[in-house]
Write a protein that binds this DNA or RNA. Structure first.
Length: 273
DNA sequence: ACTTTACCCTGTAAGC
DNA sequence: TGCTTACAGGGTAAAG
């Protein structure tokens, strides 16, 4: 499940290999991937446009085109952006192909078809930006986080997954950050003390920043890979996520798993209170 | 206004 | 061995 560190890894690859290139044409193999009813209009609008910059907002990849519009890509569960030679046949599950002007193609590959690509005007991008909470690595303070949690009675784990509270955290890093902060995932969000909120913010930033340096987490089923097909290296450092029954790295108590808001949640019942 | 549930999808693994 | 079922979960829309 690509989250902030995985999306950031892809964006850095795009900055290196795709920014400055011009899109020659686009081919859509699975129409629902493109969030626009008129696919022909989408193809016309991106064709001939140069990619001026690559950025990230939450889990969204944002490519600015020289038309002033923004190509946004959300990988959701199994989406991948891959750079391929123009002569290479698309691999299985390829949904959209963008041909570039340097004999390469940008392939959007997505086994489960949840990923979405949209072409947004500046005002639409601003609306998307406004819907999302702060960026945890650059724009989130403890007081802002506290304010976002204060009115929520839902479990803190569920609050961390709510992209309007903060943007970019998914199931892996929510569990990892709560373990690092020593906070039980089922604690109501509005019961965290000031100290706990500060500890949670520090844990989130540490867990996310470290995962970025390791180029994200590649799990056996989601198989996240970067733009050039490279796996992440963070999976060997997970403390609780998908380690049900394994000893807690701090106290050796077996890690437990519960379902919270329809999501698997992993924690140490001794260290997290 | 907040919270929960169903849905979209396919491959893998477990159960009978 | 072969079929059926559960599970993985990000975001959105609908229901509560």
């Amino acid at each position: 499940m690509p989250e902030l560190p995985e999306v950031e890894t892809v964006v850095r690859g795009l900055r290196e290999h795709v920014v400055g290139r011009t899109i020659i044409s686009a081919t859509i193999f699975w129409p629902k991937t493109v969030q626009k009813p008129d696919l022909a209009a989408f193809i016309r609008a991106v064709s001939g446009r140069t990619i001026e910059s690559a950025g990230r907002r939450g889990k969204y990849i944002v490519l600015r085109l020289d038309s002033g519009d923004y190509l946004t890509i959300h990988l959701r569960m199994t989406g991948k952006l891959l750079l391929a030679a123009a002569s290479a046949p698309p691999r299985l599950h390829t949904r959209v192909v963008f041909a570039l002007d340097d004999s390469h193609e940008m392939h959007f590959v997505d086994l489960r078809k949840f990923g979405r690509i949209a072409l947004l005007a500046a005002a639409e991008l601003a609306a998307l930006d406004a819907r999302l909470g702060p960026e945890p690595l650059t724009d989130l303070s403890a007081s802002t986080l506290a304010a976002g949690l204060a009115k929520r009675k839902i479990a803190i784990k569920s609050a961390l997954l709510d992209q309007s509270v903060l943007a970019g955290v998914g199931n892996i890093y929510a569990d990892e950050a709560l373990f690092r902060a020593g906070i039980h995932p089922q604690r109501p969000a509005n019961t965290l003390s000031t100290t706990e909120t500060e500890r949670l913010l520090a844990a989130l930033q540490s867990v996310l920043a470290t995962a970025v340096t390791r180029h994200g987490t590649t799990l056996s089923d989601e198989q996240f890979i970067g733009l050039q097909g490279r796996m992440g290296e963070n999976q060997g450092y997970l403390t609780v996520f998908r380690r049900t029954g394994a000893p807690c790295p701090e106290c050796a108590t077996p890690i437990e798993r519960v379902r919270l808001g329809g999501r698997s949640t992993h924690f140490c019942p001794h260290c997290q209170t």
